[in-house]
Amino acid sequence: MFRSHVEKLGGRTIAGISRLGQFTTFAGVLLDCLITRPFRGRRLIDEVYTIGVLSLVIVCISGGAVGMVLGLQGYTVLTRFGAEEALGSFVGLTLIRELGPVLTALLVTGRAGSAIAAEIGAMVATEQLDGLRMMSIDPTHYVAAPKAAAMVLTMPLLSALFIVCGIGGGYVVGVQFLGIDPGSYLKGLEGSIKFSDDVMGSITKSLVFGILVGMISTYRGYTSAPNAAGVSAATTGTVVVASVLTLIVDYIITALWGV
């Protein structure tokens, strides 16, 4: 009884380590593909379109909504201390340092990461990747690398747009609805946000999340079983693993570098 449990644990450990090794190999091949010619500009543009442009609407709407909530909540808390003018810096700092990069990463995982895993998984199931191999085209180079690269490139852009929409949302609630002086809202933003800490930290976070989501989604699609269940497992796996890892890595970055 006890022995079977130990055996099971051992089996799981070995399987986990071999998956980790497989993932590392995949990441290595992916990196290799990013620097090997030909450079697939057209594929990259197409992927920036599907990942970036098609996620734009949900990112902006969510950003605006989050900014408005922050405006309301912040106002309620700050009026207790008579510090309504600090609303600008409250909304701005919260969005730039945490909510912008993290929520964007979660939204993009759900919107585009799952789509990447599903698309590559379906290509595995319909032998399209083998089809590419038979044309002497490396499917990692043709399919996965442009997707991962586009993910890394678009994540900071989407995150910045999320933050700007959020600041706009906070402005609408704070200034238009709650009657805070527009000058003090903007002054609070400008006074509290530092480029080298806050903005750079924000961009760094979203780049790291972009790498994370890009690699996990392409890897899960690539290694999915060639059937419908495999595609669905790859999609779910991507969303779960990428979301949880995003939150954990966010904590690690914040704890280590204080951004």
């Binding site: 290509m123 319909t126 032998e127 089809g131 191999r133």
Partner: peptide, 14 residues
């Protein structure tokens, strides 16, 4: 593989 052409069962067109 450039010396070999393969016609897949489902076509495998992208």
């Amino acid at each position: 593989r450039r010396r070999i052409g393969m016609m897949f069962q489902g076509g495998a067109l992208l």
